[in-house]
Structures are given as C-alpha cells and as structure tokens.
Amino acid sequence: MKFWEENKKHVYWNPYFGGFMLGLLLIATFYITGRGLGATGGTKSVVVATVETVAPKYAERSEYYGKYYDEEANPMNNWLMFETIGMLAGAFLSGALSGRAKFRIQHPKHIEPNKRLMWAAVGGLLFGIGSQFARGCTSGAALSGSAVLSLGGFITMFAIFGTAYVLAYFFRKLWLN
C-alpha cells in the first residue's frame, strides 16, 4: 500500500485528458448557469462580507464596497462562494486520494522556506490587485472569457502569460538551480 502510494505521488493526469475534462466542465457550467468558472469571485465575496461585518460604516461609504453593499442579494456572489468551497473540497479529495495531502512548503532546494513564503505573499498580493482591476483572474477572465470568445478574456490571457514569460529570466533564481 505504501509503495503504491509513494508511486502515485507524482503521477498526475495526462495534461490533455485534464484539459479535456476541464473543457467539458466549462461547457457544463455554461449550460447550467450561462456563465463560466471563477476563483477570485468567491474570495472577493469573503473580503466584502468581512469588511461589511467589521466596518459596516466604512463599507457603506467606500466607493468600492458601496457597489456591493447595494447588491447584497446578488446571487452571483453567493454562487461563486459555494463554487469556491467546492474547489477546496475537490482539490483536497484528489490530493488525499493520491497521498499528496500534507502540510509542507514546496520550494527549490536552494531557496529558504521563508523566502519562498515571502514571494508567495508578493504573488498573492499582486494577483489580488490585478484580478480586481482586470475584472477576473486566470479562471474568471482568461479561461471562462476565452471559452465564449470574449476579446477581453484573450487580452488578459496574453497579458498574464506574456508578462510572466518576459519576467521569467529575471526571476529564474527563484525557480531554477
């Protein structure tokens, strides 16, 4: 059993199979809801809900939160919230079944764990700001947008990957030995 689990640890799905399944899931999501998948929408709902609970006066005054304050009954926000909870459960299920679920920091050998965490924080921060500015992240804007041929989806997709390719050289020491 242990040998079997050790063996499976790094065996991921064939990427074309994974892509095909993800494509089918996108089709099913559009068929059912008329919209695509998202990953930052649910996160944003949590932020909005937190700010509204902790500082309701601020939320009402703020231009940004004010937008959502009025749309409290907006079912779309809740839909993404439930979807996000599902994502966590689904990912955990896959990881647990393959023996990958455990607490650890993944980093190249020459990178200190704390350094890796610091850069992860920088990345998360930038993605938080960027995804709000672009009205969606890699899932909501790039993937789901492109699935219905949205021009903005393609622009965001090329901007994300293009920028990362341009910067890859400068950040190579973070990832390569």
Binding site: G123, S131, A142, L167
Partner: peptide, 20 residues
C-alpha cells in the same frame, strides 16, 4: 484587461500560483 493581466503576470512568476 491588459494592465490587470500584466500585474497578474508579475504575481504568477513571483508567487508561482494563480488564485484557483
């Protein structure tokens, strides 16, 4: 869409993840 994407590109290469 472009500037947000560029900021996210920075986030991707530094953080190694995207939100999903």
């Amino acid at each position: 869409a472009a500037i947000g994407g560029i900021i996210m590109g920075f986030g991707f290469i530094t953080g190694g993840f995207c939100p999903g």
